[in-house]
């Protein structure tokens, strides 16, 4: 149970970074922390104490397997995370080229 709570805390650290930090790169880092926290949580959900890799062969029987589905989901989630992070960082670079700054307070042109 402690590990679950720890990964939720990791998620909240990432969320804090995204919402509070003023630097574009730090915001991107916050996202990555958030994604890894969720991936960790997914793997933990599939974990079974003493379980082995879920590969069926002739002589394997009566063993505990870990749940393979969350692992498959995590692989997909990592790829999606790669896409979003790459896009986010490339935008941060383009914004830096325009303003020579990563500071969000110096870039604000739009008013909510």
């Amino acid at each position: 149970m402690t590990v679950f709570i720890l990964s939720v805390i990791l998620f909240l650290i990432g969320l804090y970074g995204v919402l509070v930090k003023r630097n574009l790169i730090k915001i991107a880092l916050g996202f990555m922390i958030m994604e890894y926290a969720i991936n960790l949580l997914f793997v933990l959900i599939g974990y079974r104490a003493g379980g082995t890799a879920p590969i069926f062969t002739q002589d394997v029987s009566g063993q505990i397997f870990v749940d393979p589905l969350p692992q498959a989901l995590v692989l997909t989630a990592i790829v999606i995370g790669l896409g979003t992070t790459a896009l986010l960082v490339s935008f941060a670079v383009r914004i830096y080229q325009k303003y020579e700054s990563f500071d969000i307070r110096k870039i604000r042109e739009l008013r909510g």
């Binding site: 996202f31 935008f91 870039i107 604000r108 042109e109």
Partner: peptide
Amino acid sequence: SEELEASFKYQVLGG
């Protein structure tokens, strides 16, 4: 610059 900033904001909240 306006488009980039809007998209960054969109990415942060959408993400």
